[in-house]
């Protein structure tokens, strides 16, 4: 009874099937076109770069989340890892540890936290939802204790200025966070499409016992995806901290849901085994453009939530229709 979409359709450029697969891209283009008509400031280089920069944090979280969801898992702890690693980085900077080292250590910290989650899920056979829910609460608590509930400022040293580059700098006229986002997506795309690891991620999400019987170390793949997800959460935390020159203990609260929404709007199945990383980028951009447009159009922030929910629901419904 199983009925799968043909994977070849992506090859038939501009065919009906191709359009169905690219529906999130089309939705993005339509959205941009409509908002451009409604507000002349929207389609300016400044604003577009602004959107990209604002989107980069959620997009980077969503990239890691895509890996996790492809293995039929879920990671609710991304927001908490973001806050903890951000705080950690901020205090290192305030102690005048060189920015590059602080960043690398914070990234490593994120990866280790992720790998702990992965270990609990793989070896402890705990459901991903529960394990990451626990991590989410636990790490938020640790962050609160660590920061004493107050922001940690990076200080006013040269090192703090270096560190600020990650969130506020420009390269070739494009904000650094956007470069980071592009780099992250290119890397994950490469991982998923051109490495064994990527193939195993899809296989694991599609049928765990068959993957195991194919002689693949399923536990290692699981630990791998949660580590990458943790590392990317740390990267997002660094960007936010760097941009604000301080780490907020409540940073990233609720971001896990935005990240999951971006993944789902991008066409990746929560059941695992099916999805595309570039879909996630588009999904994140749809949410980013929507946020920006609603602000530009002076929609009240209460009403914004309703609109956002409606758009996500619509995207998922359309996705189901074509299955």
């Amino acid at each position: 009874m199983t009925n799968f979409e043909s994977s070849q359709s992506s090859r038939h450029f501009l065919s009906k099937a191709w359009f169905i697969e690219q529906k999130s891209l089309i939705a993005l283009i339509v959205l941009i076109a409509v908002v451009s008509v409604l507000n002349e400031y929207f389609f300016t280089i400044d604003n577009l770069l602004n959107i990209l920069r604002q989107t980069s944090v959620i997009a980077i979280l969503a990239a890691g989340m895509t890996l996790v969801i492809l293995t039929a898992g879920i990671d609710l702890s991304v927001g908490s890892i973001l806050a903890l690693c951000g705080a950690f980085a901020a205090s290192m900077i305030s102690l005048e540890i060189p920015a590059v080292i602080a960043v690398l250590v914070a990234l490593l910290g994120g990866a280790i936290l992720g790998s702990i989650t992965g270990l609990v899920i793989a070896k402890g056979k705990v459901q991903a939802f529960i394990a990451t829910l626990v991590m989410m609460t636990l790490l938020r608590g640790v962050t609160m204790v660590y920061t004493d509930g107050r922001p940690i400022s990076t200080g006013f040293t040269d090192i703090a200025d270096h560190f600020a580059w990650f969130g506020t700098g420009y390269m070739f006229g494009i904000p650094v966070p956007v470069w980071l986002m592009i780099f992250v997506f290119a890397t994950i795309w490469y991982l998923l499409n051109h490495t064994r690891f990527g193939r195993y991620v899809y296989a694991l999400g599609g049928n765990e016992s068959a993957t195991k019987l194919s002689g693949i170390n399923v536990d290692r793949i699981k630990i791998g995806v949660y580590s990458i997800c943790g590392l990317l959460s740390a990267l997002a935390g660094i960007i936010i901290t760097s941009r604000l020159s301080s780490a907020q203990p409540t940073a990233g609260m609720g971001y896990e849901l935005d990240a999951i929404a971006a993944v789902v709007v991008g066409g990746t199945s929560l059941a695992g085994g099916r999805g595309y990383i570039m879909g996630t980028l588009i999904g994140a951009l749809i949410i980013g453009v929507l946020n920006n447009a609603l602000n530009l159009l002076d929609v009240s922030s209460y009403f914004q939530m309703i609109v956002k929910a409606a758009v996500i629901l619509l995207a998922v419904l359309v996705d189901n229709k074509n299955k």
Binding site: T2, F4, S7, R199, Y202, A203, G206, N207, S209, A210, T211, L213, S214, G215, I216, G273, R274
Partner: peptide, 17 residues
């Protein structure tokens, strides 16, 4: 149940091991 990943392509399945 144990043999194939039904949602993947013929190629991906065949080369998995």
């Amino acid at each position: 149940g144990d043999g194939l990943v039904l949602g993947l392509s013929v190629k991906d399945n065949m080369s998995l091991c």
